[in-house]
Design a protein around this nucleic acid. Sequence first.
DNA 1: AAAATAGAGATTGTCGAGAAAATGAAATTT
DNA 2: AAATTTCATTTTCTCGACAATCTCTATTTT
Lengths: 252, 252
Amino acid sequence: MGMNLAALVEVIVTARANNLNVSTHESMAQRAYRLIRADIISGARDPGERLRIEMLKTVYDIGPTPLREALQKLSTEGLVLALEKRGFMVSPLNLDEFSDLNIARIEIEKVALARSLALGDNQWESRVVAATYLMKKEDEALLASGAGVYDAWESANAEFHAAMIAACGSKWLLQMRDQLQDMCERYRRSSISQSNKKTVNGNRDVGEEHAAISDAVLSRNSELACQLTESHYMKTLSRLGGNPNLVGDLQP
Amino acid sequence: MGMNLAALVEVIVTARANNLNVSTHESMAQRAYRLIRADIISGARDPGERLRIEMLKTVYDIGPTPLREALQKLSTEGLVLALEKRGFMVSPLNLDEFSDLNIARIEIEKVALARSLALGDNQWESRVVAATYLMKKEDEALLASGAGVYDAWESANAEFHAAMIAACGSKWLLQMRDQLQDMCERYRRSSISQSNKKTVNGNRDVGEEHAAISDAVLSRNSELACQLTESHYMKTLSRLGGNPNLVGDLQP
DNA sequence: AAAATAGAGATTGTCGAGAAAATGAAATTT
DNA sequence: AAATTTCATTTTCTCGACAATCTCTATTTT
């Protein structure tokens, strides 16, 4: 692939702006980062678990240098804790931090949602409609099966919420939100693996919540959309044992 | 310093929660991270500048492995761009991204400010009063001197704005805000070095703006405080050539 | 002259080795 | 017995070396 530097920078900056992955063949460091990150978020690695280089070398078949680079990146994100002269560990979980994360996530999501509703064009509306359609199908399938959430449901859910805020006009706002989302996801997963997976959606009709959010968004009712989204996330939070008192609306 | 692992993790987690630095003797990787980060934010390293390992090795007297770890961390933050098989460079600046960053920063700051006003206690009020007092002194000194901003003014300004939002109840919200702030700072610095330093505060009476913000905060007038803070930051943005249209209030 | 090619030199990304520090178990002291 | 010390082992962090790849100049071709 012959390409000069300026052109490559252009490609990378543009791709990053659209949250795309441009790599032809990833480096060992990237690979390590991707794999370890996925293992931590999915709960395959327990919170508090030591991440010893020798062990990781054996498991992922990657040398110590790229492994350390990956762990440093993850420590910047907060998924990994770097202990001076004592290596790395998966960041421990605690409920106070979960509340803290959720406050940040929900507040940022609300801001992005309000902006998105104010700025979104027809293209964006079409994406919202498409995501809503898919979400409805998956919510119905989930309700019918009575089982836990599928991967298909998960990805429809992710796209549903991403679509709503996509037109907010700041990729940094979206990136902050994504990062906080991933941190929260780890709490959700570890909570699921501890309790019964079937209770994940409790007695809620998540489909109805999604439909209400979509309606509010498409009718550009910013206040209602924010309120519904907040309570949507808060229901998940309180079911997982977080402290909802710290999150809720402040002005009565 | 004899200390078992559990105790150390406790110390580190607690210290991180309060944004403290607990290191007794920093590692080469930490040192590289700190120095390179400061050089990028201060503008000592130009946007778009290649960061070659050999060069960095000579300048900072640090081996290639810790240097790469530092660069990877910085690339997670967005200050450095990692180019596949072509090393690292200081992230290029562009005005669109500056607007983007400012949207995110101002929105997050407003959210944190509203929460802080709703949740802050007497202890917090006292910090606000102290920061306001110091800020007033520094603003007066700045006005009297007629010169550019001093380090003392910079740090008073940083504490002034940090104090206002300190009681928001989410360390993550504050951390996101800090990260965006540092990114914005780099734009401000590079803009200053290009133009005349004396024009930094233009015809604005920044002292008056600060006083108005402080009054609104202490009287718990959330809406006014948010509005004043937003326009305070926007004045800086538009003077630096950003696109203020993309930032402003959305609901008329 | 502009574009393509080729090859010397520089740079990245990775690995293994080794010094310095932490850990844990056994021995010693209080 | 509990606390301290000792010391062998493990682990981290850092460095230099090396293969793979990129870059830049000089040369050839169109």
